[in-house]
Computed example of a mutant assay.
Amino acid sequence: MKVWTISNQKGGVGKTTTTVSLGGLLAQRGKRVLLVDTDPHASLSYYFGVNSEQLSASVYDIFINDKPLTADTVLDCLCPTKLDSLFILPANMALATLDRQMGNQNGMGLVLKRALEAVRNEFDYVLIDCPPVLGVLMVNALAACEKVVVPVQTEFLALKGLERMMHTLVIMGRSLNKQFDTLIVPTMFDRRIKAAIEALATLQKDYGDAVWQEVIPVDTRFRDASQAQAPVSLIYPRTRGVYAYAKLLKELEQKTNL
């Protein structure tokens, strides 16, 4: 089972779109995929029409569970999607209270890692959508993964958020005694806009080989797909956004297999 975390300490850069798009492509290729929503705003959950505030169980229940985590404990929290092999572990607003409730408890940074270990035989891939805030949820998402995908909107304010994220990865790497396999992914790129071209050039100059050499373009089909509550590759398979994410997936799988 491969675990990828999609993270950035700035909102609105394409984290959820990246999670859904990669997960959809993997599921359509016959992989068993789990998408994990660790953002209290639950954008990933709502994308698939899951109103997590009305569910009997969510990822929050895994964090507050005081019994040993089993596969059944985790599987009971999952919701299906329009793809048979794609499932979601939904979030809810109660997650926003975790730092205050449990942030100082020993082992709280490894809860998600243990939960995913319990369902290791159930899935081929796990993609974790992170909140844009450093706290117990992001710590869990980073501790659980083997690869970090950092979507960055191609505009200068987003580049400042990237600085914070990369600094966080350094600090977390020291704390967890691991070196993160990180790929920075330029998103929402519009080649007609000079500022976007300049931001992309700055990104490549400052971060070099850590930056994916392609881009995810602006594509209105992403919005249309979210309204249909399905991955864009399922509804609009021939759009430029799908083509770009297919190339990104190929890059991620090649680097994972090295």
Rank of each mutant, 00 (worst) to 15 (best):
E122K: 15
M1F: 05
E253V: 08
E122L: 14
E163K: 13
N177G: 01
V215R: 03
L234Y: 10
V139E: 15
N140D: 07
L69V: 12
R191N: 11
L78A: 03
A228D: 12
G12L: 02
N257I: 00
I184V: 09
M138Y: 12
F63G: 04
G23I: 06
Q101W: 06
G14M: 06
D66R: 13
I184Q: 02
S58R: 03
E155G: 07
V232L: 07
L44H: 07
N8R: 10
L110Q: 09
V215S: 04
M93H: 07
V126C: 10
I6P: 09
A27G: 05
D37V: 02
V218R: 14
V119I: 14
A210G: 01
Y236N: 10
D224H: 08
G109N: 15
G161M: 10
N51L: 03
T17E: 03
G241N: 04
D206A: 09
N106G: 11
Q28D: 03
F48S: 01
K10Y: 01
K67H: 14
A96H: 06
M93D: 12
Q54E: 11
T5C: 13
Q9A: 12
G161K: 09
G49N: 03
G24H: 01
P231T: 04
N8I: 06
A225F: 07
K250V: 05
Y125F: 14
N121M: 09
K178L: 09
V150Y: 08
A143N: 13
F189T: 06
N8S: 13
Q227E: 15
L26I: 02
L44A: 03
C79V: 07
W212S: 01
V211R: 07
T18A: 00
Q229D: 08
Q153L: 05
N65K: 09
P231V: 00
P131V: 11
E122V: 14
R32A: 10
T239E: 04
L127A: 07
F63N: 02
V218F: 05
L137T: 05
P132C: 10
T17I: 09
D39K: 09
L95N: 05
A144V: 05
L258K: 15
K113W: 04
I64M: 13
S226H: 08
L249M: 13
L26K: 00
V3W: 11
G30V: 02
E163S: 10
F123M: 02
Y243D: 11
T73L: 13
L55E: 08
T187M: 04
R29F: 08
F222Q: 05
C77Q: 11
F222V: 04
D76L: 12
P237C: 03
P217F: 08
A230G: 00
V126M: 08
M93S: 11
L110K: 14
A196C: 12
H41G: 14
M188S: 06
T70I: 06
G30N: 02
Q213L: 14
V33W: 05
R174N: 15
